[in-house]
Simulated assay, not measured.
Amino acid sequence: MSEYHTPVMLNECIEGLDIKPAGTYVDVTFGGGGHSREILKHLNKDGKLLAFDQDADAKQNLLADDRFVFIDQNFRYMKNFLRLHDAVPVDGILADLGVSSYQFDQAERGFSIRFDAELDMRMNQQSTLNAKEVLNTYPEAELHRIFGIYGEIQNAKSLANTIVTARLNAPIVTVADLKNAIVNRIPRGKENKYLAQVFQALRIEVNQELEALKEFLTQSASVLAPGGRLVVMSYHSLEDRLVKNFIAKGKFSGEVEKDFYGNDNKPFDSVSRGAVTASEEEIKDNNRARSAKLRIAVKK
C-alpha cells in the first residue's frame, strides 16, 4: 500500500468523519486503501464501509474484511450503487481527489511529465477517450477552452493553435511528441509548471473530472443522513472552488437560495472554518500534501 500512495492528512480526515462505531461509511476514492483501512479501525462489528474506485489497479489493495464492500465504479455513480447495496442513508463520505502517486509513477499510464510514454491518462482503463485522442482530434477552439479553463494557461489560444498545426505533420502520440510540438510556447524557467498545467488540463478532460465531482457532490447531499459528514480533499483550485461553493451554497455558482421563511436553503453547514491544510512536518515527509485542501461539512 505504501508504494501505492501515502494518505494525505489521514488523522484530519478521520477526525472530520466523526465516525460512529456502528455507522455506514463511504470512501469514494479507495486507491491504495490507506483511508479505508483507518476507517475500519474505528468501526465495530456492525459498522460498514463501501469503497469506490474505477482504476483496475486499485483492486490489488482490496481489504479482507466482512464489513468492507468494494465497488469498481467512478464515484459519479455513487447514489445508484449505494442503493443497490441497500446502504442509504450513510453516516459519512470521504473523497481524496486527484491522481495517486502510484498512478503518476506508472510510466505507461502517461500521467507524468517525467517519463516518455504514450499519452493515455485514463483513470478507468475501459474508457474510450484518452489524451492522444483529445490532442489529435479536438477542434482548435475546444483545445483552447480546455487549456484555458482546466489548465489555467495564459497562452491557451496560441498553445491550441500550435498543437493543431503540429498534428498536420504527424500525430502527437507520446509525451516526447507533445513536449517537442509545444517547446516554443513554454515560458523559459517555468517548464515544469507549464507542462504540469498542460497535463492537468488533458487529464481533467479525459476523465471528465469536474463533471464527475459535481455529480458526486450533488448526490452526497441526498445519501447522507442528517448529521452525516462530508469530507473532501482536493489538490487544485478548480476542484476546491466547486467543493467550497457547494458546501457554502448548495450549488456551484450564484447566490444561496432561500426558503419561504427566508432561511438558507442549502444541505450542508461547514464544520471547518475555511480549508484545512497539512502541517509543515507532513509536507516535509510527503510533498503531495503541499497543495491539499481539506473541507469538512455536516448534513443539516
Rank of each mutant, 00 (worst) to 15 (best):
L94E: 10
H35K: 13
F260G: 01
I146V: 15
I71A: 06
K20A: 15
N287W: 05
F52R: 04
D120L: 11
L168F: 10
M121W: 01
Q125E: 01
V90C: 07
L84S: 10
E133K: 14
P171G: 00
T218S: 15
A181I: 05
D57V: 13
S222Y: 09
P21V: 08
V256I: 15
E255M: 09
M9Q: 03
D65L: 02
V173S: 07
V173L: 01
V88C: 09
R109M: 04
L238K: 06
M78A: 13
G92I: 01
T29D: 04
E257V: 10
F52E: 07
G254A: 07
S112R: 00
G31M: 13
R109W: 00
R188C: 06
F68W: 05
T24D: 06
E152D: 11
R290T: 06
M233R: 05
G254D: 02
Q219K: 05
D264F: 11
L213D: 04
T6F: 07
L178R: 07
Q197H: 15
Y77F: 14
F268P: 01
C13E: 04
D120N: 15
F199Y: 13
G31I: 11
A278Q: 02
D65M: 07
A166G: 08
A289W: 01
F252R: 10
T162E: 12
V90P: 08
D65R: 11
L40F: 05
K48A: 00
V99S: 04
F68G: 03
D57R: 12
I153N: 02
A87V: 08
M123L: 03
H85V: 09
H236N: 01
A87W: 02
G33E: 10
F268D: 02
V28T: 15
L50Y: 11
N124S: 08
R167H: 02
V173A: 08
G34C: 04
E142R: 14
A170K: 14
